[in-house]
Amino acid sequence: MRRRALNRTDRRVNIALRVLCLGAGLLLFVALAAIVEQVIVGAGPAINRFGLGFLTRSSDWNPPAQGATTAESYGAPLYMYGTVVTSLLSLIFSTVLGVSIGLFLAIVAPRRVTLGGRWRVSPAGLIGPLVELLAAMPSVVLGLIGVLVILPFFHSTVDPVIHAVLGWIPIFAKTYTAGNSLFAASAVLTIMIVPIIAALSRDLFSAVPQELRDGAEALGATRWEMIRGVVLPVTRSGVTAACMLGLGRAVGEAIAVEQVVGGQNQGVIHASLFLGGNTLASMIAANDPATPVTKLEGASLYYLALILLVFVVVTILAARWIAGDFKAKFR
């Protein structure tokens, strides 16, 4: 077939499209490179001063009062600990909840429920959009709900009960706060990640071929045995990747955590989940690196950001690697 001659307008549009797409791709690259560059440059003084010791040195964060000349000391362990603990706790909670919601929506929910007379509704059709709605909830709103609802509830009910029953275990030790704690931050993060894991795992479970499910049920498997024996193993790596995406969100979340975590920035790491803590992201959100008390404090905040960046990149890469494994398995 002879190639159709392009008229001038076609050629221009083609070129414009190519330039636009290439430009957009390049812009992404430039933006990422600029972020990394800014963070590293910003952290420069702190890296020079503390080196890798920043990751292990005392967690005190003591910018000097105006005019004072005491030696400044900054360190990351408290915040790294807070990030790891809140992320992992929320990951555990939200995996259980999110996968359960996904299973309900994709498999367990009855197709139709008759509500008397001619009203028939599909539970999955009702709840599915709510999951997406929850996923779109701005994090600052979730943080506000954390402050107004979750913290008082934790303070009045959850904390005393857990302390009374499990208080002898260090991680459940007595609380002194108004509810602000690593545990409260994990709860808010859980609300945030659940819809991500629920929506993604629902799609994965729905994609399990009906023949496989029929095959299991035709062998005398109960629904639970079918789920445990076929649906979950087949989707395992996909669900893991979904959880890692949720984890990526939890690791980097700043505002909502900052509102409920307690903002601790002094002293040693304590075991109790029910005491105030802090995370990398919430520490940065609470202390604007653009207007630090001293240059070194600003640089140290950038250093925290660098660590956070590494955390996030590692979780995203892990998610991609696992998801790639998943695709390979399904061919």
């Binding site: 496989l212 095959g215 299991a216 035709a218 062998l219 005398g220 498997a221 087949v234």
Partner: peptide, 27 residues
């Protein structure tokens, strides 16, 4: 479930589980 345990079924399209040969039969 008891019905299906006594009355086995083989489908039009082969539908082995994505597991080993042994695990399929032992499932």
């Amino acid at each position: 479930v008891e019905v299906r345990r006594r009355i086995g079924m083989v489908f039009q399209k082969p539908n082995p589980f994505p597991k080993s040969i042994f695990a399929n039969v032992a499932w």
